[in-house]
Design a protein around this nucleic acid. Structure first.
Lengths: 110, 110
DNA sequence: CTACTATACCTAAGTGAACTAGGTATAGCA
DNA sequence: TGCTATACCTAGTTCACTTAGGTATAGTAG
């Protein structure tokens, strides 16, 4: 069911943030998200790879094939300057949103 | 564009929370969300009314026609016991999710 | 040598929530 | 008389995510 795991729309900012640490391949982005959220967010590959392609189409990412530390082929993604600006704006959007929702949910009843 | 305003999936918990204050009509739920989030979230009616019907179909809400303080007909929604349990679980889901994402976004770079 | 797991990539089909963009009707006010 | 706010609604569209597969290789357990 759509939305049973991710709140739809929050994946992009997580991908951008992961790549702000430096170039990373897709599988690594998924691992980064899982690890930094302590398994709270487990991104399905069927969501992850299309999202990477989408962000690249929008000009937020570049890709380049490379080789991992363990000698495997992997496609490395890197933030473009536009992607970096997008990250800042998406982080701001998330913070304002999370603050607003949390305030609403913190109000008195139930 | 889908998701340009709401993170998809967060509307349900906001509706349930609004109704935890007591019975409220749909238009009032929209107003409650807008006001308690200080206009950060402005729910479109095309999202709000279908969501109310959806939650009712799931057995989380009851409805009853009534009259507002200003003498207008309005459909009042009320949480069912199941809806109240659902609210608690959705609030927990939101909190865990928001905590996880915020932690990820707070990490060092960019 | 054989399985199995983890790594690393991918896509097609389906779902469904939200957005867009309309519609109806009434109360109150200028 | 017209405008705004209130109060309800839905049809059509979009598109992110889930489900459910697929390929291929490195490393390890048996």
């Amino acid at each position: 069911m759509a939305g049973s795991d991710l709140y739809v729309g929050t994946l992009d900012v997580l991908i951008l943030k992961a790549l702000s640490w430096g170039p990373m391949h897709g599988y690594g982005v998924g691992r980064w998200i899982r690890q930094t959220t302590e398994d709270v967010l487990a991104v399905q590959e069927g969501a992850l790879y299309p999202a990477l392609h989408r962000l690249q189409r929008r000009g937020w990412l570049d890709d380049e094939w490379g080789v991992t530390e363990t000698g495997r082929e992997a496609k490395y993604y890197r933030l473009t300057p536009v992607g970096r600006r997008q990250l800042r704006s998406e982080v701001e959007r998330w913070r304002a949103y999370a603050r607003a929702v949390s305030t609403a949910l913190d109000a008195a009843p139930a």
